[in-house]
Amino acid sequence: MFKCIAEIKKYQFLIYELVIRDIKKKYRRSVLGVVWSILNPLLMMAVTAMVFSTIFRFQIENYPLYLLTGQIMFTFFSESTSFAMASIIENASLLKKIYIPKYLFPLSRVISSCVNLLFTLPALLLIIFVTGQTVHIEMTAFIVSLALLLVLCFGVGLLLSTAVVYFRDIFHLYGVVLSLLSYATPIFYPEKIIPEEYQWLIVYNPLYYFLDAFRETLYMGMLPDIELILRCAVIAIVALIIGVYFFNKHENHFILYI
């Protein structure tokens, strides 16, 4: 544990460089550059809002904000975990030549997705102002749930990046899992519409709790429920432990398979 912290400290410049690289590459050669971070969720939100508010007519107060909080959070999860999953294989040529702690690659991927999420916050603020939502100081408490989500993503990322080294099938499978998750999580619909017999879908969906915590702060403008935060913390830590366990167990053999 202490060794790990010392190692991260030693390689903090590398983490920084890797994060910068991801961000630079994402926006290189696009005219609007980082503005896309704000524009993209807004446009996505507009499209989804158009579809769902005309077809389904959900009874949700301030639907754009409801939708945007859900989308931003889910995008972070799906982006960071799928990038982390690929990170070991993508850096195969490097890992074969020189010793670097391997977990730095999934870690930096998750961090760069988090930085991306922070770039999208102006979009959120914009929607809050445009829809006339009152701004509460409690909203800043979303940082807590974001930090926990980051831990969850890192844990899942470690697990996936290990699995994908041995079975490339996971790449294809995970895309399906993600789209399943996006429907099983109340991102664009109110959780009330889930029928009684399908409630288990969200009860056993870890992302649901994180989404709830996000919405309590950013959408409803209150401090998140302590019990909810504790649940998120337990989920995140369990995911981290599982991820670290599998990653540690197999990392010495990665090189034979990548």
Partner: peptide
Amino acid sequence: PLIEVGAGFDPDLTARENIFLNGAILGYS
């Protein structure tokens, strides 16, 4: 290690960025 030609480079980054990235990989500040 004399890294095999270009193994540590990211083709999309410029020479300047790659120098810093590569240095970081080798563990320098």
